[in-house]
Structure formats: structure tokens, C-alpha cells
Lab assay of single mutants.
Amino acid sequence: CHSECLGNCSQPDDPTKCVACRNFYLDGRCVETCPPPYYHFQDWRCVNFSFCQDLHHKCKNSRRQGCHQYVIHNNKCIPECPSGYTMNSSNLLCTPCLGPCPKVCHLLEGEKTIDSVTSAQELRGCTVINGSLIINIRGGNNLAAELEANLGLIEEISGYLKIRRSYALVSLSFFRKLRLIRGETLEIGNYSFYALDNQNLRQLWDWSKHNLTITQGKLFFHYNPKLCLSEIHKMEEVSGTKGRQERNDIALKTNGDQASCENELLKFSYIRTSFDKILLRWEPYWPPDFRDLLGFMLFYKEAPYQNVTEFDGQDACGSNSWTVVDIDPPLRSNDPKSQNHPGWLMRGLKPWTQYAIFVKTLVTFSDERRTYGAKSDIIYVQTDATNPSVPLDPISVSNSSSQIILKWKPPSDPNGNITHYLVFWERQAEDSELFELDYCLKGLKLPSRTWSPPFESEDSQKHNQSEYEDSAGECCSCPKTDSQILKELEESSFRKTFEDYLHNVVFVPRKT
């Protein structure tokens, strides 16, 4: 048989008469490798580009789960590009990614509803959504962080984005990388972005840091009482949809009607710091009717980097990364020049730590249904340095008659930039024990000054392991946590139920 035959053949030295091919099969003959313009397919066939392209389009058009959109890589027609490569849609070739590779997620039936953290986790790592997304989240724990972890990498949506009755959302900033909504599939009414009845939605994105392009379709905003109209108009300008909307697409009466839409800028007039305090004062603000001013709200939190936005980490279910302080308005003076500047002394802060701070007014709604208010920009203030805590785990070892090696770990709280350490030492008198000992005694162990690591005695271990207080009263049991108490109650309830079950099964009433 021919060298490319495997198993047997019907005619000697003829690659077209093989029972099976050793390498690849091409047009009725066995070959060692697939010549151009053919590609290896499933490690035994040679196919042309049209064959591989037909497989790709067949799966793409069917949208069946589990099928493969075949691509070409290293002269092979394979189910998908290997790690580190992405497909070129024009020629199906796998090309190296520039940075992290995109991950295209194809949605069944063309859309997916995100109504819980669990459903959001199914899209973790996706960068391109081939379909439409509907966000409908009523509640949950730590929602802002969970949504950002699972949806934060999405850069492109081919269909539309719909935010509907998501009472738990305060902001859409968890879509931190969303840059493009194509609108290839539109919501009824030709809408590519749809926001309806979101009672706590206050911000779409921080438009000073976020760009969003909507290729096709219109915007729809109705019944978002805490979303200011200025935020919607800003989205029109940034996304390129200005002029597409009709009169009733953006409701003037049901958007922002319960919001404090600040239209003035508060400026800080005085800032002073110490290692654990920050004193702030800002310019006074009074609405047209000074009785509408209820006070100020001061927001602050630790910020290692200057990239904080107002609604980071917030949701309507209680999660809030900001510390909020309510401040009463100052006494009002008739003389504008003698107006008191409101302020606040922030206490209990960490030394040498940068804080993000902003302040906003708290006002009631005027009778004319106009909203007044003022808010400052987010500023960054760093507390002063102070003395560091003591170095940890000092170790001293003498390696000769004239040297001592000293080692330690950095302090747990540096409280500033540590530039150097101060080492103090003092000579001590020799131990009298060394002169009084009889060095001729056998088995004498000389006193040693070398360091030995501390260890816990058996008594201390027994005390720590004991669940009861000892007789001397030195140790006591740790208080039980809520989960331990709940577990004990469940076990007790189970024992009672099981005992009742045994009584009912074992003891049967005697027939009379």
C-alpha cells in the first residue's frame, strides 16, 4: 500500500485506493498535508475557505447554543480562536489581540433580562453583547459592586439597553466600559436606550469621564423622579442622539420631579488639616426662599486615587461607600458681607490618608415646582503625618564578641513616609551569675543571650482551647457569634421535631 494509506488498500502504491488515510483526505486521495488554498479540518480532512465560511455563517444565523462559528488559524479551520487571539470578521482569520481579548457573548432569543446578581454573573467577562440587555433589578445585597464585577467589562451592545423598574439602582456607572450601543435591534418605538419607572436612579454616568455613542435609535425617559433633566440632556449631547427624540420621548413632568437638581456650584473657602482632623468651610448658599434650606450634607471617604465619582458603590438597598454628615444651616444675616460661612470639623480620621470630599445642599421643593440647590466639586484632601507606631517583631542576635545583629519589621501604621529608623542602645553591667558559677561542674549549661522565638506554653494553649472559665478566673470563653447562636437554635429545633416524629412513629394507638 501507499505510504499515506492506513489499515489496508485495494490497489498497491495508489493513494486513492486506501481504506483510511494516515494524515489527511483531499478529493478522494490521501495526502501528507493540505496544500494551499485548503485548510486542515478536524485533523483528517482538507477543506477550502468557502466550506469553513459556510459553517461560520450557519452557526451565526441559527443562534443555536453550542454550535461553533468556525475560524481560520495556522492553516486550520477550527471552532474558535485560541487564547490571546480574536477573529477578523472580513476573512475569519485569528489575529493577536492588542491588550485583553474581546469576548463576544451571543444571547438566546436576542435579549437577556438581568433581574438578579445570579443572572448578571452569566455575563461575567463579556466585552461584546450580541443582542439586547434588559435591566430589571428590584433589590439585593452589595448590588453596585456585584454588577460592576460582572457587567463592568461590557464595551458594546449590538441591540438596545433597557432599564425598567430597577428600584435598587442609583447610577449606571457599573457599566464602566460601555462605549457603544449599535441599535441594530430596537425596542418598540425605535428606541435604543429605554429608561422607565426607576424610582431611585439619580445618575446615568459621570459624563466628564465617560463617552457613549448610540449609532441608531432614540432615547426614552419616563417616570424617573430623581433623575434630573440636565442629566438626560447631557446624554443626548454626548451620545449623538440630540435631535432624534420626539416631543413625548422625554417626559418633562415625570423626570426629576422629586430630585434636588443642583444648578449652582458650592466653593470651599477654608481648608485646614491635622493628622486626624480636617476643618472645612464653604461659601454660604440661600435659595430664593431661605426657609427652603434644610441644611447641608457632607460626604467623605478614603480615596487612594483621584478618580472618585459621587455615586460609586451606591445602591438604593443601603450600600453606600460614603460617610454622610448632616449639618444645620448657619444663622442668616441681613448683611451679605457678614454672612457666616458654614463648615464642619471632621474628626477621627487616619493620618497621612487622602480623602475625597464634597458637600451639597438639602432643600425642600418650592411652590413653583422649581428645584434649587448647590453642590461642590469633589475635592481631595490629605491629612498630615504623625509619629508612626512601633516597629514590629524586633530580633537581636550576637554573632561574635563585638557585634549584635538587630532586625525588625516595619510598623503596622507608618502614618507617613518613613525615611529612617533611630536605634538606641545602652551598655549593661555583666551578670554576677557568670562569676559565681563553678565551671568545672559536669552538665553545666552556660547562660545564653542568643534570641529564641517566643512560644506559647501548654497552660496558655489549654486556656485558649477551654470553653469555660478556669477556677483562677484568668480566662473566659469568647462570646458566641450570631451565626453560632442561630445554628444552635436550628439544631435544637431539629432535635425537638425529630423526637416528636419518633414518638408518633414508635407509639401507635392500640386498636379498641
Rank of each mutant, 00 (worst) to 15 (best):
Y167R: 10
P288N: 11
D206Y: 04
L265V: 14
L108K: 07
L107T: 10
Q245M: 14
T215V: 11
N150Y: 14
T185K: 13
Y305M: 13
N255P: 05
F299D: 00
W207G: 03
A144Y: 04
S274V: 03
L180Q: 06
G140T: 07
Q216P: 00
Y270R: 05
Q382K: 10
L151S: 01
C105L: 01
G313F: 03
V359L: 09
D367F: 06
E122L: 13
V397S: 11
E109K: 08
G256P: 03
L293P: 07
I232M: 06
A259Y: 04
S402D: 10
V381C: 00
V325P: 00
Y223C: 06
F311H: 13
L293V: 06
I135E: 00
M297D: 04
K337P: 11
E236A: 11
L161W: 00
A374P: 15
I379C: 13
M297S: 15
N136I: 02
W352F: 08
I188N: 02
I181F: 01
Q339R: 09
N198M: 05
P394Y: 08
K350Y: 12
G110E: 15
Y223A: 04
R370G: 14
L266D: 00
I157R: 01
P225G: 11
E236T: 14
V359F: 02
Q314Y: 03
A316N: 10
K277P: 00
M235P: 00
V325W: 15
L169P: 08
A251P: 13
K209Y: 14
E264V: 03
A251K: 11
L349F: 01
W207M: 08
C228Y: 02
T113H: 15
S274I: 02
A144E: 14
F365R: 15
S400Q: 13
S173K: 13
A251E: 09
V128Q: 01
N399I: 10
Q216M: 14
R244F: 06
S396I: 01
D312K: 14
E262W: 04
D312F: 14
L298E: 00
T371C: 01
Y223N: 08
L279S: 07
L212S: 02
L219R: 01
L298Q: 00
K267Y: 14
P336R: 03
Y355Q: 00
L227W: 00
P330M: 05
L180V: 09
S132Q: 03
K409H: 03
A303R: 06
N142L: 10
S333E: 14
K360Y: 02
L123K: 00
K242P: 05
L151N: 01
L204T: 08
N198W: 00
V390G: 02
I232C: 09
F268Q: 00
K407S: 09
P411V: 12
K277L: 10
S208W: 06
S319V: 09
L123S: 01
T113F: 05
L349V: 06
S274L: 09
S119G: 12
A195C: 14
P411A: 13
L331S: 11
I378L: 13
F311V: 13
K409T: 06
I404G: 00
E231V: 03
I327T: 03
S402P: 02
P411L: 02
A120I: 06
N340R: 02
T361H: 02
H106T: 11
S119R: 05
N141F: 10
L172Y: 02
H341E: 11
R347S: 07
T371K: 06
A356I: 06
K350I: 02
Y194E: 14
K409M: 02
S173Y: 08
L349H: 00
C261G: 02
Y300C: 13
G183R: 02
I114F: 02
T113E: 10
T113K: 12
T371S: 09
G313D: 02
C261H: 02
L169N: 01
K337D: 15
A195D: 00
N198I: 02
K226H: 04
P394M: 09
V170A: 11
L229M: 05
D115G: 05
L201N: 00
F299H: 06
M297N: 15
Q314F: 12
A303Q: 14
K337F: 12
D377F: 03
C261F: 02
L147S: 02
L265R: 14
Y194A: 14
D312M: 13
L212M: 12
A251G: 08
L345K: 08
V308R: 04
M235L: 13
A385H: 10
Y167M: 15
L201A: 03
G131W: 00
K277F: 15
L201Q: 01
Y305L: 13
L212D: 00
M346D: 00
E155S: 13
F275N: 04
V128H: 14
T254L: 12
Y270T: 07
E237S: 08
S269Q: 05
F175E: 00
K350V: 06
Y372A: 02
I134G: 06
L186F: 09
I137K: 15
N320H: 10
D206I: 04
L107F: 07
L265Y: 06
E146K: 15
W207P: 03
T113D: 02
E184S: 14
N387M: 09
E146D: 10
I395A: 09
L406S: 02
A145N: 09
S208N: 12
T361F: 04
G125K: 13
T254D: 04
V397L: 06
S166L: 08
L362S: 05
I278V: 14
R176Y: 10
N224W: 00
G110C: 05
D292L: 11
L172G: 02
K277G: 15
T371I: 15
A149N: 15
P329W: 04
L298R: 00
G256T: 01
H222P: 00
G159H: 02
T254K: 11
C228L: 04
T371F: 05
V324L: 13
T383H: 00
P284F: 12
M235I: 10
G189Y: 11
T353H: 08
G256S: 06
S132L: 00
K242I: 09
A195R: 00
Y194K: 12
S402W: 07
I214P: 00
G348L: 05
L362H: 14
R176T: 10
N141I: 10
G313S: 05
T213K: 10
S402L: 10
S239Y: 03
H233P: 01
S166R: 00
A303K: 05
K350Q: 14
F221W: 01
S338Q: 12
P329A: 07
F175H: 01
G189L: 14
W205C: 02
N198H: 00
N150W: 10
I214E: 00
D289A: 05
N211W: 14
N248I: 10
T118H: 12
V324F: 13
Y160D: 01
S398R: 03
G159W: 01
L108F: 10
N248E: 11
W352E: 12
M346P: 00
K226D: 14
S333D: 13
V170G: 13
L212V: 13
I357G: 01
V381R: 14
V238R: 15
K242E: 13
G295Q: 15
K218M: 11
L229Q: 13
D276V: 01
V170P: 07
T353K: 12
E302Q: 11
P288W: 10
D257W: 11
V381A: 03
E184V: 13
N263M: 04
Y305A: 14
L266P: 00
K277W: 15
Q258M: 10
G183Y: 02
D115W: 01
D393P: 04
Y160T: 07
Q354E: 08
S239R: 04
K103A: 10
R347L: 08
L293A: 07
A316V: 10
M346R: 01
C261V: 03
V238A: 07
L169G: 03
G313P: 07
P342C: 07
A316R: 15
P225R: 03
S132K: 02
I154A: 11
D315L: 06
I357M: 02
F268I: 04
V238W: 04
T215E: 09
L349S: 01
K301I: 11
L265C: 06
L204Q: 01
E184Q: 15
D289W: 02
I327A: 05
T361E: 12
N255V: 03
N320Y: 09
G110S: 14
N248V: 09
E111R: 13
R247W: 13
F220K: 14
A385P: 11
I379N: 04
I137F: 13
E262C: 08
K242R: 11
N198C: 01
F290Q: 04
L349A: 04
K103D: 05
S260L: 11
V324I: 04
S400P: 04
Y305C: 07
R138V: 11
S208F: 12
N150F: 14
G139W: 06
V381Q: 13
P336T: 09
P288L: 07
W352A: 13
L108T: 14
K112V: 06
N263I: 09
F174P: 06
R291N: 10
C317Y: 07
S321Q: 10
N211I: 14
A251Q: 13
V308S: 09
D384G: 15
S239K: 03
Y167N: 13
V238E: 11
V390N: 14
F365H: 13
E368S: 13
N136F: 08
G139Q: 14
G152M: 05
F275L: 11
S119T: 04
L227E: 00
V104H: 11
D377A: 11
